[in-house]
């Protein structure tokens, strides 16, 4: 299938619903396996840190959630752009179903960061640059969620949220730079694409497993909530009736 064909196919929620069932399940299973492996490996087998002892182990939850909530927002911005420009129904649904997932992951990232901060920084909350930008990200998710709830017509709500997501994506780098202005207490990023990790392999491998796992989880959650959303929006069509009740159209 060429990219152009795939592009046209994605315009059809029905096609997506029927094709993506196994993908959702597959990614869900992969996420469960990876997250269980990575977490057990990180919590039990990996060696303790020479400075932070065992308290560093929360990194295996903190870093994956903090990474995925930013990716989720960017994905939402891209989907919002697709919806505003091409009016692709599926893109609107992506914006809608990503918000709760991103909100939960941001909250988890903040919570685990706070728990980690208590023993290492000696405080539950510090207005550090990255903590602050995560908090703002959470507020951006709140805004999107509230806007969607406030607009009664689904079509308008979709376009309004898509626009707001897009504005948010343009703002995120500016927010990041502005809060980085204040000197940071946070340790530098654990993973960067350009450099080799500074941790030994037995410590970062389980982290990598968990990061991949949490991205699989995002895929699984987004796909399965998309399929539910498709059923809800298309509930008056004959194909949905056929799909769910086994009646011929």
């Amino acid at each position: 299938m060429t990219i152009k064909e795939l592009w046209h196919r994605l315009g059809s929620p029905r096609w997506f619903y029927q094709m993506m069932g196994p993908w959702g399940t597959g990614l869900g299973v992969a996420a469960a396996l990876l997250l269980i492996t990575g977490t057990l490996w990180g919590l039990i087998i990996a060696p303790p840190d020479y400075q932070q002892g065992n308290s560093f182990r929360i990194i295996y939850v903190h870093v994956p959630t903090a990474l995925v909530c930013q990716s989720a927002y960017i994905m939402m911005g891209v989907a919002g752009f697709l919806f505003l420009v091409w009016r692709m129904k599926l893109a609107d649904m992506v914006v809608k179903v990503t918000v709760p997932f991103g909100m939960v992951m941001t909250a988890l990232g903040l919570f685990t960061g706070s728990v980690w901060g208590a023993p290492t920084w000696g405080t539950w909350w510090e207005w550090d640059a990255r903590t602050t930008s995560m908090l703002v990200l959470l507020f951006l998710y709140f805004g999107l969620y509230a806007l969607r709830q406030a607009i009664p017509r689904a079509e308008s709500a979709g376009r309004a949220c898509a626009l707001l997501a897009l504005v948010g994506v343009i703002n995120i780098p500016i927010i990041k730079y502005s809060v980085d202005w204040w000197l940071t207490l946070h340790q530098p990023a654990t993973f960067t694409l350009t450099e080799a990790p500074s941790m030994p392999a037995e410590m970062w491998l389980p982290l990598l497993v968990n990061v991949i796992g949490v991205y699989c989880l995002m895929g699984a959650v987004v796909i399965s909530s998309l399929r539910t959303e498709i059923l809800r929006r298309e509930c008056n069509t004959s194909w949905v009736r056929e799909e769910l009740m086994g009646e011929p159209a």
Partner: peptide
């Protein structure tokens, strides 16, 4: 709702102005 939507986007201006 307006406050929820707009205030997070105001943050950079606030930070640079105050600092």
């Amino acid at each position: 709702l307006l406050a929820l939507v707009v205030l997070p986007l105001y943050l950079p201006v606030l930070i640079f102005g105050v600092s």
